[in-house]
Amino acid sequence: MTTTKSSRPTPDATLARIRKRCGEGFFSVSSHLDNLRLHVPPEKLVELTTRLRDEFGFHLTELGGADYLGYPGRSSASHRFEVHYVLLNYETAERLILKTGVSDPDPVLPTLVPVWAGADWLEREVFDMYGIVFQGHPDLRRILMPEDFRSFPLRKDYPLRGRGERHNFERVTREDS
């Protein structure tokens, strides 16, 4: 009943394999301990993830966004939003993080739902929280916030306490009920 993957490839080995098979130049690499991050342009995303799934056995485990408005060390050329895709190979226990950036006025990214069905709700959550539109998503609507909510709460320019939406209800008194 026990399964152990004793020989877990190092991030460098993973990177070397990807470079060999997919070519290099279209992504940049950064890392921290065993986290290997590939920064991929949006137009290459679907192609790369499909190849990673079919040829390397990577599968999606996590997808989320971040807003870098005012983050230290970001130049004006870098993107405001970044979406990360954490991939996992269930056989070799390798992990890989893909990051792709998108900028403000009209943030649009390709959807990954055709590649992994599990991306469905995760992309809807990113849309709900950051307003990033996933092109080709089958059912892109708000998931956590109410339908009539107008802002995107996790953006850095939205205040923690909101803009008064939380107090916008009728008051029911003892006399009414």
């Binding site: 939406e165 939380r166 107090h167 209800f169 008051r171 029911v172």
Partner: peptide
């Protein structure tokens, strides 16, 4: 935070 009602007694007795 933005989503949480700050006390239900604001809206029901």
């Amino acid at each position: 935070t933005y989503a949480v009602v700050q006390g239900v007694d604001r809206f029901i007795p």
